[in-house]
């Protein structure tokens, strides 16, 4: 079992487990930066996992499939923004509605498209391809980790940098942060907070839909009922633990991914399974404790001066 920790497969499984959570974490981060808690990630993941399968099978193309899925993700974000911003619905209520629609709605749509209720086995979908990087793949050990991952895994990692630059280095990113920090102050200098929040929620939906596509076309090669299995909520936790920043969110989702992959490996030992299944959550708790301790220290230092 300990030898397994030294195999490239273990590190691959970390990256695989991290990818969907990372997309959703970034999605949660950008919404949070604009001052909205996007709790509908779970539902968006599930919807886009289903639509990824449907669109890629209809278009027979990965690119078209994922583009259309992103449109669906954006539309759900738009839908949510409309209710929250125009209709003044409570954001948590709106999110619960979307999550509930997702559990029932995906089954209904699945039934309509495939005649099945449990999984999309009768639909032939196009999964995101695996990318083999020449030269790098020849490096022993590391090559097997850095190369041969799913395209979407690479995209997720790239998106961390892109989102970081977007939020901290662009005018629009500045506006998003301004609205999130203080809506009235932002409005007073002529920023339309509604427009900015619309943009962040749509962006959030699009980012999250990439994670959903990966679930059914990359991680698995089919849609199965309720396959998001709480990943949206884990991402929500990861994002807030990482201070809603892309880099912080990335680190925490890697931690979650690693804890999950480690727990998966641990199941091969004779340690009781109940203990092992606690690992990811225990990691979260410990991580959270360390994190808030650091924040507290820093605050104490600042106020002390």
């Amino acid at each position: 079992m300990w030898n397994s920790l030294l195999t490239p497969e273990f590190y691959n499984s970390i990256l695989r487990a991290t990818t969907p959570i990372l997309f959703a974490t970034l999605a949660s981060g950008v919404a949070a930066k604009s001052g909205i808690c996007n709790m509908a990630l779970e539902g968006i993941l599930l919807f886009s996992a289903l639509f990824g399968v449907i669109f890629s099978s209809v278009t027979h193309s990965f690119l078209l499939g994922i583009l259309l899925t992103m449109v669906v993700g954006g539309c759900i974000g738009l839908f949510m923004a409309f209710f929250i911003l125009n209709m003044k619905t409570d954001e948590i209520l709106a999110a619960i509605a979307i999550n509930l629609i997702a559990t029932g709605g995906t089954v209904l749509l699945l039934l309509a498209f495939s005649g099945d209720r449990g999984s999309s086995t009768s639909i032939t979908n196009v999964s995101a391809p695996v990318l083999v990087i020449p030269f790098i793949q020849d490096i022993p050990f590391i090559g097997k980790i850095l190369s041969g991952q799913n395209v979407l895994t690479y995209l997720a990692l790239i998106m961390v940098v892109v989102m970081h630059l977007f939020i901290y280095k662009t005018p629009l990113g500045l506006k998003i942060r301004a609205v999130g920090e203080n809506k009235n102050a932002a409005e007073s200098v002529g920023i339309s907070s509604r427009k900015i929040q619309y943009i962040s929620l749509v962006l959030s939906g699009v980012l999250c839909s990439l994670g959903g596509y990966f679930l059914s076309g990359g991680y698995m090669n089919m849609f199965t009922k309720d396959m998001s299995a709480g990943k949206g909520f884990i991402a929500l936790a990861a994002s807030s633990m990482g201070g809603d920043t892309p880099i912080g969110g990335f680190l925490v989702s890697m931690l979650f991914g690693a804890a999950q992959a480690f727990a998966n490996m641990m199941q091969l030992t004779t340690i009781p399974v109940e203990l092992i299944q606690m690992i990811p959550y225990l990691t979260t708790l410990i991580g959270l404790a360390i994190f808030s301790y650091i924040v507290m220290k820093r605050k104490a230092k600042l106020s002390g001066k």
Binding site: R16, S119, L215, M227, Q260, Q267, L268
Partner: peptide, 22 residues
């Protein structure tokens, strides 16, 4: 290996890959 629920097919796949790789 135990998934912990009956829905998380991705986790089921990871657990199974770990077992097959072992």
């Amino acid at each position: 290996s135990m998934v912990g629920d009956y829905e998380d097919s991705a986790k089921g796949k990871d657990l199974s890959l770990a077992m097959y790789n072992a």
